[in-house]
Amino acid sequence: MPATTTRPTASRDEGTVQARTARQQPTNGARRLGNLRHHWWGILLLAAAALVFVVPLFILVTTAFKTNSDIYTWPPKVLPTDLTRDNLTTAWQLAPFGAFIKNSVIVTVVGAVAKVVLAVFTAYAFAFLPFPGKNVLFLVMLGALMVPGHVTLLVNYITIGNMGLINTYAGIILPGVGSAFGTFLLRQHFMSLPTEVFEAAEVDGAGHLRKLGSMVLPMSVPAIATVALVAVIDEWNSFVWPLIITNSVNMRTLPIGLMYLKANDGMVSWGVLMSGTLIVVLPMLLVFLFAQRYIVTGLTGAAAGSGR
């Protein structure tokens, strides 16, 4: 999987687009003006591209706060005449959004933390601890990246059923906790750390836990953040597995709750559906806003392994 192997290394030099353009722009303001005059059509295209992606989000946000009389009118109103919270209230009445939010938060936090912890320990083991057949084992683990998640649904449902965990948090979380991609990314990072530091420590007889806690982890914050953020996004947005493995309304996570709301809403009010949607979208948009760099590197790498 050479394409996969190169990705995390390539991303480490932080060649993130945004960072680079942002750094260059202020320095050559003169050229920038020239650019402007030269490339007006480029700017136009850029604006058009932005519009294509902003307009649906704009519709989402405004509709969530529009009254029905603003939504069901023609020609359409771009902005709400009154801001209303009724949609949110109605969404709460039609579906247990409190429970959805609670479930999503629990599943996301516990799932992501467990995934990161397992990935850190596994990566540490593969990077620093001796084990016969370790490299073969590593390849076997990487092989899991090739298994398409959708094909595992049926059997995992049966497995979780046999464990008596259907409709439980453990049932939702457990199959997603094992992490081959995160382990791979962290192991590559750990192995790139300067070994001299560790050798000095080994003379000291520093235990492995201390080595992990006081040296490897502090030196790997960006890599771990990347793995954690990808895990958070995956868990929060996860759809088909929570759909299958839960069967009572009160155990549904937010994305499934949205489908429930839609079915319950009977296509009556777009405002209600949009306010529910906003609750699903907003947290991840905020996370993205503040951690864009890590997320972009992480997700571009994660694509190699269908999110496992």
Partner: peptide, 15 residues
């Protein structure tokens, strides 16, 4: 704009 165009990738497909 790069950020905006990438944003849908982090949003739930259901949403």
């Amino acid at each position: 704009v790069t950020g905006i165009v990438f944003a849908p990738h982090v949003i739930a497909g259901a949403a």
